[in-house]
Design a protein around this nucleic acid. Structure first.
Length: 426
DNA sequence: TCTGGGGTCCTTTTCCTT
DNA sequence: TCTGAAGGAAAAGGACCC
């Protein structure tokens, strides 16, 4: 909090002491909007963007090679009804939502609800490019920005020129307009005394909304909302709250702190109480280091450790390679190697192993992950396999240190190898 | 007939050491 | 040598988020 108190030394504008103003900015239907910039002819149509393993528009692009994307006839786009395979919807346009399809729904189920919907693949690279562009626009105007994923950020307005005017509305407008001018994309912004409230506020007026919440507005604007609107209250907690007759944030605020602690534990119970009262002192964090890095994949069909050994082995090795490549590209080494697998009945299990030394080597990762694999039940069929490296540390650009790490990795590999010669599974 | 992938953080369990 | 307590670290799982 101290960081955000108004400067004591400079008696700035005498009448208007600066109060903490935090904005949450959320891009409106980000993925879909980016796709519509590319394919404007799909405007207003039901479009679903989904986790298709094969790009459903590959054939489309091939067939119309040379033609500007915006001139590809709508009738040629792949339809949901023609899709067969696993996958879920990542996002859907408003027109598609009319049919009851939405994020996280299985594609097969969605195809029944809206067979005529167009299906586009998820193009993360493109979304990341737009993400970088809109974030650059923001930091030009307000440098204290916290990245919250590809389409969301928090911004500290407190000390930004104009950040106090109208509770932050003018600055929010400026940012909205600048982002639209630079990218053609719209966003919604909530400005409030802290991140918790700002996050809720940004949802008030979607799309293209600006919502201002002042400290005194808690009762009127926040308390009537369902508890589920609190960022950090998910379906499980909501269910427990409902069971106790707590439906709104106001009802939650009315509960004794001690009672909540009794039901939800010391830490989470106390946090729920604070949240209901709109209290949140978390700073806007402009930089952070990753804790773990992982790769996982769901198979086209469930695989069996023995019957599909070769296939699983290849997938497993590929996952290790991808994690290792990611680590090296991003400049990290880690020392906790883990696997995750999901059985055909959707239960998942994880196994971890912490090494003596940090590594980013495929071989070491593969060996350690192989040992983890030996500790799980492989009689059931699997639908997902993942490999993770945790306890990350940034690797020095310094060559000597790198070489040292490599040497250690080498001996580590050998050590693991000698203990593992009874053969890893895949 | 279903239910992605990449993360973080917290709690509980397990294991090791003293 | 066995047992149990205590505490810490690592492992496992769960909830949540985008």
């Amino acid at each position: 909090m101290a960081r955000y108190a108004s400067p004591v030394s400079a008696p700035a504008s005498p009448a208007t002491a600066s109060i903490r103003r935090i904005a949450h900015l959320d891009m409106d239907a980000f993925y879909a909007s980016v796709e519509l910039l590319r394919y404007p002819q799909l405007q207003g149509l039901p479009v679903v963007i989904g986790g298709a393993r094969r790009r459903p528009d590959d054939a489309l692009l091939q067939k119309h090679a040379g033609l500007p994307l915006s001139e590809i006839p709508v009738d040629d786009f792949p339809r949901l009804k023609d899709y067969a395979g696993r996958g879920v919807i990542t996002t859907a346009t408003y027109a598609a939502r009319q049919f009851g399809v939405g994020s996280a729904m299985g594609l097969m189920k969605a195809a029944k609800l809206c067979p005529q919907a167009l299906l586009l693949p998820v193009d993360f690279d493109e979304y990341r490019r737009y993400s970088r562009r809109f974030k650059d626009v923001i930091t030009e105007i307000a440098p204290l920005m916290e990245d919250r994923g590809v389409d969301e950020v928090y911004i500290d307005f407190t000390e930004v020129p104009g950040g106090q005017r109208d509770g932050g509305r003018s600055l929010a407008r400026l940012i909205q307009k600048s982002i639209f001018d630079a990218t053609g994309l719209t966003c919604s912004i909530g400005v409030a005394p802290n991140k918790l409230i700002a996050k809720m506020a940004s949802e008030f007026n979607k799309p293209k909304g600006i919502s201002i919440v002042m400290p005194d507005d808690l009762q009127a604007l926040i308390w009537p909302l369902p508890c589920r609107k609190i960022n950090g209250v998910g379906p499980k907690t909501d269910e427990k709250l409902q069971a106790q007759g707590i439906h709104t944030i106001g009802e939650l605020a009315a509960r004794e702190r001690e009672g909540l602690i009794g039901h939800f534990g010391k830490s989470y119970g106390a946090w729920l109480h604070e949240a209901a009262w709109g209290r949140d002192e978390r700073p806007v964090v402009t930089e952070s280091e990753p804790v773990s890095l992982s790769r996982e994949t769901t198979f086209e069909r469930d695989l069996h450790a023995m019957r599909d050994k070769a296939e699983l082995g290849a997938i497993f090795t590929a996952l290790c390679e991808r994690v290792a490549t990611d680590l090296q590209r991003k400049g990290y080494v880690g020392k906790t190697i883990g696997i995750k697998l999901r059985y055909d009945d959707f239960r998942s299990v994880t196994r971890d192993q912490t090494l003596e030394h940090y590594t980013a080597e495929v071989k070491t990762i593969r060996l350690a992950a192989g040992l983890c694999l030996k500790r799980v039940d492989l009689s059931r069929r699997l639908r997902l396999l993942g490999v993770r490296v945790g306890s990350l540390r940034r690797v020095n650009a310094d060559d000597a240190a790198t070489q040292q790490t490599k040497d250690k990795n080498k001996s580590e590999s050998e050590a693991i190898n000698s203990g593992a010669n009874t053969l890893p599974l895949f």
